[in-house]
C-alpha cells in the first residue's frame, strides 16, 4: 500500500514537473512565446500600451507578464489544476481542452488497434521463432525483423501511402472517417473509421513488431533452457500446457513493462504520423500548433500526453506486481 501511494505521488510529481517546465518555457525564456506574442500584437496595434498588450496576451496563454514571476506561476498552476488549459489562438473561440477532448479518442483508437496487432504478431512470431531456433524460418524472420525495425515509422507511412493509397487506391489517403458520414453508432461510421485507421496503424505495426518478436524470441529461448521445463517434460505434461503455462507466461512477463512503455512512444510518434496521414488526433493538433506558433495548444497537448503516459506507466507498474508475484518481494531487495 505504501508503495502504491509512492508510485502515485511520483506520477503526480512528474506531471507537476512538466507543467512547471512549460511555464518556464513560455514565460522565463528570453524571447520566448510570451514576449513573441506581445511583439506580434504590438505590430498590429501600435497604439496600445505594453500593459494592455500584456493583459491581452495573458488572456490567451494564461501567463501574465505584468505580474511577478512567482505570482504568475501560482496562477498558472492553479488554472491547470482547475482543468483550464487556456484558449487556442488559431481556433479562437475554442478552448484547448475542447480540442483535446475532440481529438484524443482518435489517437487512442489508432494506438489500441496498433498495440493489439503488435502484441499478437510480436509475441506469436517470436514464440514460433524460438521453438524453431536455428531453422530457416528463424533466421529469415530474424533478418526481416531487424530490417523492419530499422525503418522509421514515418518512412513506412510514406511508403504505404504511396503504394496502397495512391498507386493501387486500395485505402483512403487521409482523414478519420469517410466524408458525409455522421459520427454515431452506425455500421457505416464504424466501418469507415476502421477502414481509415488501417494505414496509420499498419505503419506502427510493421515497424515495431520486430523489436517485440526478437525480445520474445530471446526470452523464450532462455526459458526453454531452464530446468523446470525439462522437469515438466519428464512429468509427461502435454506440450500445449508446457508451451502456454510454462514457457509463454514466463517469456511474456518481462515484456509487459516495455509493452506499456510503448504507449508513451506511440503518443510521441503520433505527432509525425498523424501529420502525414492528416489524421486529426492529438498529435495532429500538436503539430498544427507548432506550425502556427499556437503555444497554449502546444503546451496543452504536451501536458495531456504526459498525463496519459504517466497513467500508462502506473498501470504497467501496478499490474506487473499482480501478474508476477515474484516482483512484489523483489522490489525490497534492491534498496541497499
Amino acid at each position: 500500500m505504501n508503495w502504491f501511494i509512492k508510485r502515485i505521488g511520483q506520477g503526480v510529481f512528474t506531471i507537476f514537473t512538466v507543467a512547471s517546465l512549460t511555464f518556464v518555457l513560455i514565460r522565463v525564456m528570453p524571447g520566448g512565446p510570451a514576449q513573441q506574442m506581445v511583439a506580434d500584437m504590438r505590430q498590429r496595434q501600435p497604439s496600445l500600451s505594453t500593459e494592455q498588450l500584456n493583459v491581452m496576451a495573458a488572456q490567451r496563454i494564461g501567463v501574465d507578464l505584468n505580474r511577478p514571476i512567482h505570482e504568475a506561476y501560482i496562477d498558472y498552476m492553479l488554472n491547470l489544476a482547475g482543468g483550464s488549459l487556456g484558449q487556442s489562438i488559431q481556433y479562437h473561440p475554442e478552448t484547448v481542452a475542447d480540442i483535446i477532448a475532440r481529438s484524443l479518442p482518435w489517437t487512442a483508437f489508432v494506438m489500441s488497434i496498433s498495440l493489439l496487432f503488435v502484441f499478437i504478431l510480436g509475441i506469436g512470431l517470436g514464440a514460433i521463432m524460438a521453438y524453431k531456433e536455428g531453422s530457416k524460418f528463424d533466421v529469415g524472420s530474424s533478418i526481416i525483423a531487424i530490417f523492419l525495425s530499422s525503418v522509421p515509422y514515418y518512412v513506412a507511412g510514406v511508403v504505404l501511402i504511396y503504394v496502397l493509397a495512391l498507386e493501387l487506391s486500395l485505402f483512403p489517403l487521409n482523414g478519420r472517417y469517410p466524408k458525409g458520414v455522421d459520427p454515431g453508432f452506425t455500421l457505416e461510421f464504424i466501418g469507415g473509421a476502421l477502414y481509415h485507421v488501417i494505414l496509420p496503424a499498419a505503419s506502427f505495426v510493421i515497424t515495431t513488431w520486430g523489436g517485440f518478436a526478437l525480445g520474445m524470441r530471446g526470452n523464450s529461448v532462455q526459458v526453454l533452457g531452464q530446468d523446470y521445463i525439462r522437469v515438466a517434460k519428464l512429468r509427461g505434461l502435454a506440450d500445449r500446457r508446457i508451451a502456454l503455462r510454462y514457457v509463454g507466461r514466463n517469456a511474456i512477463l518481462p515484456m509487459w513493462t516495455s509493452f506499456l512503455i510503448q504507449v508513451g512512444f506511440m503518443f510521441g510518434a503520433s505527432i509525425i504520423l498523424e501529420e502525414i496521414f492528416s489524421y486529426r488526433g492529438i498529435g495532429y493538433y500538436m503539430f498544427d500548433s507548432i506550425d502556427n506558433r499556437d503555444y497554449p495548444l502546444m503546451m496543452g497537448t504536451f501536458l495531456v500526453i504526459t498525463v496519459c503516459v504517466v497513467i500508462a506507466v502506473l498501470v504497467a507498474d501496478m499490474t506487473y506486481g499482480k501478474l508476477d508475484p515474484r516482483v512484489e518481494a523483489g522490489g525490497k531487495d534492491e534498496s541497499y
Binding site: T14, V18, T22, G32, G268, F302
Partner: peptide, 17 residues
C-alpha cells in the same frame, strides 16, 4: 520522472522554443 516524460513531445517543445 525523466523516463515518464514523453520523449518526442518534449523534444519538439524544446526544439521550437
Amino acid at each position: 520522472i525523466v523516463m515518464t516524460i514523453p520523449g518526442l513531445p518534449l523534444v519538439i517543445v524544446l526544439a521550437t522554443t
